[in-house]
């Protein structure tokens, strides 16, 4: 697909595309079945409003048997008009159509925006006030998270305690979304046996700055992941930071240094094993919790690094999943040379 023509207006492209297809069909070897099918398509064009679907096809067959050929088949091809002129006309027509659509879009967008804002404004007026101390959302659920979360989960950070202990099933689903998205982009964008991309390294200043910056970012990411149950942060934010660090490293070091260590296969394996570990730990606690077996994990003393039962390894797993997924997205979106 080469598109280095001077005028790359959209309509030119459509035009070119259309003329190419015409040429193709003219050069194609005569195939009676294909020709018959083409005739049928023309019949469809001519009779769009009369008959329907399979029934139309039956009528068409009948007519053909009886020899009732339709003279109106070729009404839309006027041989007297030169090819070029006809094309120009066509493109004008298309342009007009698009213009009209564009105008319609603008009016509709403004209208729909106003309607949505109006309805939801009325709703918002009736909602509990912002920052209200007696808001219904601040009920016994939130109270227990805040009051007993520290003892029950061993987490100082109530949000981490909530998403990894109380509502862990949601978080599991969320990791699955992330994994599914990574696999999807892999399916859509990767071509097999792609050669290792050889990119040149970034410029000197960037390299120098990031050589000092990189360890700090990695350290910060690790801190956010490991201390997720004690201070703000956790697997998601820390994982995103670590992923950013990996991307920066791959940008700066260039020449596929990082890709050589972290091949896409290894990244996928790391993600899979983290997800499996996560599932194993959570199914253990789901099972023991639901069947009242006991076997609770010792929670340790809240506020220390090694506390909160499974929270630390769970955070680690989530962090690894997020970092690997972010890095996968990056490697798949980076421009390759074959294009």
């Amino acid at each position: 697909m080469k598109t280095t023509q001077n005028n790359n207006s959209l309509f030119r492209r459509i035009l070119q595309w259309a003329s190419e297809s015409e040429k193709e069909s003219a050069d194609a070897p005569e195939d009676p079945e294909r020709q018959e099918f083409q005739e049928y398509l023309e019949y469809i064009d001519a009779h769009d409003y009369i008959e329907f679907g399979a029934y139309r096809y039956m009528r068409y067959q009948q007519r053909k048997e009886l020899g009732l050929d339709e003279p109106t088949f070729h009404h839309h091809i006027e041989p007297s008009i030169p090819q070029k002129k006809q094309n120009v006309k066509k493109s004008h027509h298309k342009q007009g159509l698009l213009r009209k659509q564009l105008g319609w879009y603008r009016i509709a967008s403004v209208f729909i925006t106003c309607v949505i804002i109006l309805i939801l404004c009325l709703v918002v007026m009736e909602l509990p006030k912002f920052g209200d101390l007696n808001a219904p959302a601040l009920n016994e659920v939130a109270q227990r998270y805040l009051q007993q979360g520290r003892e029950e989960t061993g987490a100082v950070n109530a949000i981490t305690g909530m998403i990894l202990e109380y509502r862990a099933f949601d978080t599991f689903g969320e990791s699955v979304v992330l994994f599914a998205a990574a696999i999807s982009t892999l399916l859509l964008l990767r071509t097999p046996n792609q050669p290792l991309k050889q990119r040149k390294a970034g410029d000197e200043i960037l390299t120098m700055v990031s050589k000092y910056l990189l360890p700090m970012i990695i350290l910060f990411g690790c801190y956010v992941v490991l201390y997720g149950h004690i201070s703000p942060g956790g697997g998601f934010s820390g994982g995103a930071i670590l992923g950013a660090a990996l991307i920066l490293a791959s940008l700066v070091l260039g020449a596929g240094e990082v890709e050589r260590v972290l091949t896409s296969k290894r990244v996928t394996y790391i993600t899979v094993f983290s997800l499996l570990t996560y599932a194993a730990m959570k199914s253990y606690s789901f099972y023991t919790g639901a069947n009242h077996v006991g076997w609770a994990i010792p929670k340790g003393e809240a506020g220390h690094l090694f506390s909160g039962g499974f929270l630390l390894p769970l955070n680690l797993c989530v962090g690894l999943i997020v970092a690997c997924t972010m890095y996968t997205f990056y490697t798949l979106f980076i421009p390759t040379e074959e294009e």
Binding site: I159, T160, G233, S237, A240, A244, F333, I334, P335, E339
Partner: peptide, 26 residues
Amino acid sequence: SPDLAITEAAVGAGMTSLLFFLTLQR
């Protein structure tokens, strides 16, 4: 909500925009 702020800064401002830029570049 510092948790959300960190995540949004890393994911929204960082990762999403990076993906947009890479797509445009491609």
